[in-house]
Simulated assay, not measured.
Amino acid sequence: MEDAGIYARESPYLDRHVQVGVASGRVVSVSFPEDPADDAEGEHELLDRIFAYLEGQEDDFADVRVALTVPTDRRSVLETVRDLPYGEGVTVQALARMTPGLDAEADEDLRLVRSALADNPAPLLIPDHRVGDGPSAAPPAVEQRLRSLEGL
């Protein structure tokens, strides 16, 4: 994925668009707008994969390069989320326990986990919908559809 631009396609399953921003061959954003950006193109190999996933094809998107331009402590949380297997949910506390350097009993660390999830720049590729009691950067209806798709 060496291209750059904004790519979007309407998803009947999500009842909105899936929009992906790419720069320097890395995904910089995933969003779910009702209307795509005016300059969005409809064809991209990653959109093809995302739509196959939305039709039930299991994909962990582990090979997709995501540019995480977030503070280091939040990056650690999001990298841990990225490793959560398809169809397996966790709690915020379990995610804190799994993230190196965090204490699952410390309120400050639990707040850090929640804020990292809420500010996730690439929901779906960084599957925050697998954290059942945490916020998602995706709209609530999208989060619920993704959870349902994976049986969570």
Rank of each mutant, 00 (worst) to 15 (best):
E58P: 02
R16G: 03
V131G: 10
G21Y: 02
Q57H: 06
R74W: 08
E34Y: 06
V81T: 14
S31G: 13
V113Q: 04
S76W: 02
E34V: 15
D48V: 04
P85D: 15
E10W: 12
D119Y: 11
V30E: 00
E2K: 01
G42A: 15
V64E: 01
P140W: 03
S136H: 02
H129C: 14
Y86F: 13
A23M: 02
V66R: 00
L14S: 05
L146H: 11
D83L: 14
L146N: 13
L112N: 10
H17M: 03
R49E: 03
E55A: 11
D107I: 14
P140E: 09
E43D: 15
A137E: 06
L152V: 07
Q19N: 04
T69L: 12
S76L: 14
R26L: 00
Y86K: 07
P71G: 04
D48P: 02
Y13L: 07
V113P: 01
R114M: 09
R65Q: 13
R49T: 10
S115D: 13
I50V: 12
S76I: 10
V20H: 05
F61D: 01
R75L: 08
F32Y: 14
L117S: 08
L146F: 06
V81R: 03
V81P: 05
L124A: 03
R49H: 02
V77W: 04
A104S: 15
A122S: 09
G132C: 08
G132T: 04
D128M: 09
A4Y: 00
R75E: 15
V92L: 03
S115G: 05
A141Y: 13
A4K: 10
A94M: 15
L14M: 04
A52K: 11
H129T: 15
R145V: 14
S136E: 05
L124F: 01
L95C: 12
V20K: 08
R26E: 13
E108A: 15
I126T: 11
D103Y: 14
A141F: 14
E41V: 01
Y7E: 01
D73Q: 11
A23K: 02
D60F: 04
N120L: 05
Q57F: 04
P139W: 09
R9L: 05
V70M: 07
E105K: 12
G25D: 02
P71L: 00
A52P: 00
R65S: 15
S76E: 07
T91D: 12
D133I: 00
V70A: 11
G101P: 14
A116H: 11
I126F: 07
D103F: 10
L47F: 03
T80G: 02
L47V: 06
D60W: 05
G56D: 10
D38C: 09
Y86S: 12
E88Y: 14
Q144A: 14
E108W: 14
P12E: 11
L47Q: 03
V131E: 12
A67R: 08
P123E: 12
R145G: 09
L112A: 15
P121S: 11
I126C: 11
E45F: 00
E34F: 06
G25T: 02
D73L: 06
D83G: 13
